[in-house]
């Protein structure tokens, strides 16, 4: 029995060795590109909204930045509410969000600095192609929402304190409606998932254009039914966490990233992103 046990232990040891070996290989692969003169504190935590990550834009912007500067960006994609909270608590170095009304207090209270306008796109209301609430030819966003509420067709809200959710609540308030009842449902999740739920339930929802265009092929029954209203502007800002409030914040890295985002070259990349795939840009650069 003892021998058998030894054999068993040997087998476990071999297994563990194999696994760590495999794991080791993975690490070597990860460490291959030689960074140009690595900065003193290379790790930069970027707290951002899910739309910049899910649209694939960050996947284009960040590798270039890392290559140029040697910084390593850790992208934590959460809702705008959570991203701003992380900034306010000093748990991130740089923020990229799209809820100006919620961002301003952080700027005013000195939690963040270098508040920089980056780009915009717009929100659209999507819904079933048949448009049961008839919002297609309404004059403005308030009227469109009113029609959805009157018809009591299903409306899926993000319900997650994200930038899109904040915008949606603002629009309801502007229309003077308290969305309540079985027709108004909260998905409590990101834009992509919310669109999937909306498609399954044949409902309406408010979405940023970029995420919608990205997922369009899976959302065959949904169409853009209302767009173009001024109140549907979706504005993105970047900001650095103030190192005087939080000494652990990597301000140099945050500043370098913001500087990179507003260079003419990066702004051009932002403006071009999505054109080849969707026939239209997903974001419009605004930095001057």
């Amino acid at each position: 029995m003892l021998r058998r046990f030894r054999k068993t232990s040997a087998l476990i040891v071999v297994l563990v060795l194999m696994l760590s070996l495999l794991a080791g290989c993975g690490q070597e692969q990860a460490a291959e590109p030689a960074a140009p003169a690595a900065p003193e504190n290379p790790d930069v935590i970027l707290a951002t909204t899910t739309s910049t990550e899910n649209s694939g834009l960050l996947g284009v912007l960040i590798p270039k930045f890392e290559e140029q500067t040697g910084y390593k960006i850790k992208t934590v994609a959460v809702g705008t509410g959570a991203a701003l909270k992380m900034g306010q608590n000093g748990e991130a170095d740089v923020l990229m969000t799209h809820a100006p009304a919620s961002e301003q207090p952080l700027v005013d209270d000195g939690y963040v600095m270098d508040y920089t306008l980056l780009m915009h796109n717009d929100f659209v209301v999507v819904g079933p192609a048949a448009d049961p609430a008839g919002i297609k030819d309404t004059a403005d966003a308030s009227e469109a929402l009113k029609k959805i509420a009157d018809a009591k067709t299903i409306f899926i809200s993000r319900g997650d304190d994200s930038g899109t959710h904040k915008k949606e609540l603002k629009l309801w308030a502007a229309a003077d409606i308290k969305p309540e009842g079985t027709w108004y449902q909260e998905s409590g999740s990101g834009m992509g998932n919310t669109l999937n739920v909306t498609a399954e339930k044949d409902g309406y929802t408010l979405t940023d254009r970029a995420t919608y265009l990205n997922l369009k092929e899976n959302l065959t029954n949904l169409e853009i039914l209302f767009e173009g209203d001024d109140s549907l502007m979706n504005i993105y800002h970047a900001m650095a966490v103030n190192p005087e409030k939080y000494d652990k914040a990597n301000y140099d890295g945050a500043k370098a990233f913001i500087d990179y985002l507003v260079t003419p070259e990066t702004q051009e990349v932002i403006g071009e992103y999505g054109k080849d795939k969707f026939g239209q840009p997903l974001f419009f650069p605004d930095a001057k």
């Binding site: 563990v16 290989c25 993975g26």
Partner: peptide
Amino acid sequence: RVTFLTIQVSG
């Protein structure tokens, strides 16, 4: 890379 990291972390 993702698979190796999964093995590494969970292992």
